[in-house]
Design a protein around this nucleic acid. Structure first.
Lengths: 107, 107
DNA sequence: ACATACTACCTTGTTATACAAGCTACCGTG
DNA sequence: CACGGTAGCTTGTATAACAAGGTAGTATGT
């Protein structure tokens, strides 16, 4: 999968998954990579950035199965951002699909 | 609109529009910006890159309405690439929509 | 005791690309 | 002759995805 396609959309993916339930980083990697290719080296810096921007808050919780987990949850700003990005995403892919629908290099 | 979202998808947009008919750069800007926000500073370097990569060929044609126009058309490699990117794009946005469908920060 | 594997977190350096800003130049109209 | 529209192009900047590497806890096998 083209790396570049994911730019900007991964923020939305993370925010959207977190709008459903609090998750720790490793869990997010698993959830998101079930839908699109993603690696740890992408998610952790991204989480840090989103937290720095005030969109996420975090808390540590111990685990009996391994190291302690750092859970992230949306802040009110995160919820707002998530809504706006969702809207942008839908507008964006509808626009792209409009362009693609006309030209057809295959089918 | 988020700049980052467009990364990687614009190649596909250009190739897809060109798969329908030959276009010159300025025309591509107009066509594509009707669907998603785009600027000249993005399209021209992109066309150059796609041509360098052997996906596009170009020819000059005079215009009575202004300066000569540089038309671009797909090469066989360009057609192949267009097909592959289309497939990737559909897989990608379906994956994203799957993630978004679950979490809902709005609606 | 030691190696291996899985969980879980994090950082550094590389690479690609979108775009603002700026430039040149042709044509027609006022 | 100035101006706006058409048409092309370049340079510099900012951003983000990811490979590759590191740390550390828990559990299993030998």
């Amino acid at each position: 999968m083209d790396k570049q396609m994911k730019k900007g959309v991964l923020d939305l993916c993370v925010l959207s998954v977190l709008s459903e339930e609090d998750c720790y980083g490793y869990q997010l990697v698993e959830k998101i990579s079930a839908a699109i290719e993603i690696s740890e080296g992408t998610i952790y810096p991204l989480l840090k950035r989103l937290q720095k921007d005030g969109l996420l808050a975090s808390y540590i919780r111990e685990s009996s199965e391994g190291p302690a987990r750092k859970y992230y949850k949306l802040t009110p700003e995160g919820i707002t951002k998530c809504k706006r990005l969702r809207k942008e995403w839908f507008e964006f892919y509808n626009g792209v699909n409009k362009l693609l629908g006309r030209g057809n290099g295959d089918e």
